[in-house]
């Protein structure tokens, strides 16, 4: 790409915000996505993200920033799915499906009850990294700091419940409480990601970069670092492609990530697999 064009792009404030949003969301999704992948809970994450649509509806209905509405809804979904599965022995996919659909339905009804039409609704569903307001960036940054802080404090515990939950319990850990905490961090990561790829596609950025990183890492911290880098690269590549060809940015980012995923899987298959 021509240097002057690129310099020109970077001059725009929306572009600087977009790059910052890509960086901040990649940190959260690299770290939390690693646990999502090794603990195999991508579909819980999908459930949490879609339930959050109810929060977006609530935000519109109350006339506040929809991102603020997402926080209680995604947290409630995380705790609800976790408690139904662990304490009440409801099968996890049933709990996920119920929350997923109920949250979306609530969102649809609340948006329907809101007078007028819902501006930017599409950007919450499918993301638009080019229109992240500075205020949302501050919120995303604060959530990032919180997520990183909690993981720094509990990384050994999270590793233990991800690898061998029974042994974690025997070691005196409160494995259910830790699991609920981990799901809550996923819920907050969803909030971070909504502006970038939208609630419908959060699941891809939570799982694909970490899944690719797993092929090349020998420990959880290296997987987190690599997943963060991959996520950032996909976001920037998607951003540039969407700008150049005037495509929807969230969808472009996801397609870049998915292409990389299939390429890596194909390469693994051809190189003899494992």
């Amino acid at each position: 790409m021509n240097e002057t064009i690129f310099g020109g792009i970077l001059g725009f404030e929306f572009m600087q915000n977009a790059i910052l949003a890509a960086l901040l969301s990649s940190i959260a999704c690299g770290i939390i996505g690693t646990f999502v992948v090794v603990k195999r809970i991508s579909f819980i994450s999908g459930g949490i993200a879609h339930t959050a649509f109810g929060g977006i509806g609530l935000g519109y209905y109350l006339g506040v920033n929809p991102l603020l509405g997402v926080i209680p809804f995604s947290l409630a979904a995380a705790l609800g799915i976790g408690i139904l599965g662990k304490k009440l022995k409801v099968s996890e996919d049933t709990a996920i499906g119920t929350f997923w659909a109920a949250g979306m339905s609530l969102g649809v009804i609340l948006i329907g009850l809101t007078p007028g039409y819902a501006p930017d609704l599409f950007s919450y569903l499918f993301g638009n990294i080019l229109t992240v307001p500075t205020g949302d960036l501050v919120m995303i940054m604060l959530l990032d700091i919180f997520i990183v802080g909690v993981v720094l404090l509990f990384n050994r515990e999270f590793l233990a419940i991800s690898f061998d939950e029974e042994y974690a319990e025997v070691s005196g850990l409160k494995s259910t409480a830790l699991y609920l905490l981990l799901l809550s961090l996923i819920a907050l990561t969803v909030v971070v990601m909504v502006r970038v790829v939208g609630i419908v596609m959060v699941i891809a950025l939570l799982s694909v970069p970490a899944a690719i990183a797993r092929n090349f890492s020998r420990s959880i911290p290296s997987m987190m670092a690599m997943a963060t880098v991959f996520s950032f690269l996909f976001s920037i590549a998607g951003l540039v492609l969407s700008y150049m060809f005037d495509l929807a940015s969230g969808a472009t980012i996801i397609l870049v990530a998915a292409s990389a995923f299939f390429l890596v899987q194909g390469w693994r298959f051809l190189s003899g697999g494992r």
Binding site: R156, L159, D164, A168, G172, N215, R218, I220
Partner: peptide, 16 residues
């Protein structure tokens, strides 16, 4: 595929 070495696994024994 879990990214964990033998050393990392045994270190979990120190959790308690």
């Amino acid at each position: 595929d879990f990214p964990l070495t033998v050393g990392g696994l045994v270190l979990m024994g120190r959790l308690s």
